[in-house]
């Protein structure tokens, strides 16, 4: 980080510009070029944010679990893995929240209600609560290694909810429709430009996630370094007092 004034590098700046361009293209495709749905009308456009949001959350929580597993199984137990896990967890929670809010808006317009306690919505709410708890556990105090150990175990347990959420619409009877792309029949149920806009959304949101994680884990590294420096200063002060 020497010679750097923030958490950005030339690579992240280039990635950031690319993300902005991708999101602008998504806005054009989603709001302008793609047609209305024959039943939903313009409400379908919410899908271009809703689906990429939950997709990104799945990736985020997957990365959280992966880094947690590497941290726990690695010989040197580098805290970098824990910081990436924490950063991905934070961003994942943000994207689940976006997915819940946009889904609720879509539900009001299509189903006629903001919320129902069906299998998909209930399991997604549970996923959200679980990872809010994960983030709270990370803040409980103790050393960085204590934080890393307990949150890694929790992350490895929480990831088991993802298949439950994704397959909830096939496992149980749900108001929420089954997947239109990643379904068991491997049949894509979207017309051309709708599918393209959705795919564009998935790519754009994934790139946005990568950009956010890169910055957040670097910010976390600075926070940890600041905390360690405070400890070093306090220990030095005590030693000086003892020696005086």
């Amino acid at each position: 980080m020497a010679g750097q004034s923030g958490t950005g590098t030339s690579a992240t700046r280039r990635l950031g510009i690319l993300v902005i361009l991708m999101l602008a293209t998504l806005a054009l495709c989603g709001l302008w070029f793609s047609a209305e749905d024959v039943v939903q009308g313009s409400t379908v456009r919410i899908m271009y944010i809703h689906v990429p949001s939950i997709w990104t959350a799945y990736i985020a929580f997957g990365l959280t679990a992966l880094c947690s597993g590497v941290y726990l199984s690695g010989k040197n137990r580098s805290l970098s893995w824990d910081r990436v896990a924490g950063a991905a967890g934070e961003i994942g929670v943000l994207f689940v929240a976006v997915s819940l809010v946009t889904g609720s808006m879509w539900g009001r317009l299509t189903w006629g209600t903001y919320w129902v306690w069906d299998a998909r919505l209930t399991s997604t709410a549970f996923l959200f609560i679980t990872y809010v708890g994960y983030l709270a556990v990370r803040q409980l105090g103790g050393t960085h290694r204590q934080r890393a150990r307990r949150s890694s175990v929790l992350a490895l347990l929480a990831i088991l909810e993802i298949p439950l959420v994704h397959f909830s619409v096939t496992l149980w009877r749900s108001l929420h429709q089954e997947a239109s792309v990643a379904n068991p029949n491997a049949k894509v149920e979207l017309d051309g430009l709708m599918l393209f806009s959705l795919f564009l959304g998935l790519v754009a949101f994934t790139m946005l996630f990568v950009w956010l994680v890169l910055h957040r884990q670097r910010a976390m590294m600075l926070e940890d370094a600041f905390s360690d420096r405070g400890l070093d200063v306090a220990i030095t002060a005590r030693r000086n007092e003892a020696g005086a």
């Binding site: 047609a35 209305e36 749905d37 939903q40 429709q177 089954e178 149920e189 017309d191 430009l193 709708m194």
Partner: peptide, 9 residues
């Protein structure tokens, strides 16, 4: 209950 099919108008 909307189906999982999206058809362009």
């Amino acid at each position: 209950k909307h189906s999982n099919q999206y058809v362009e108008k």
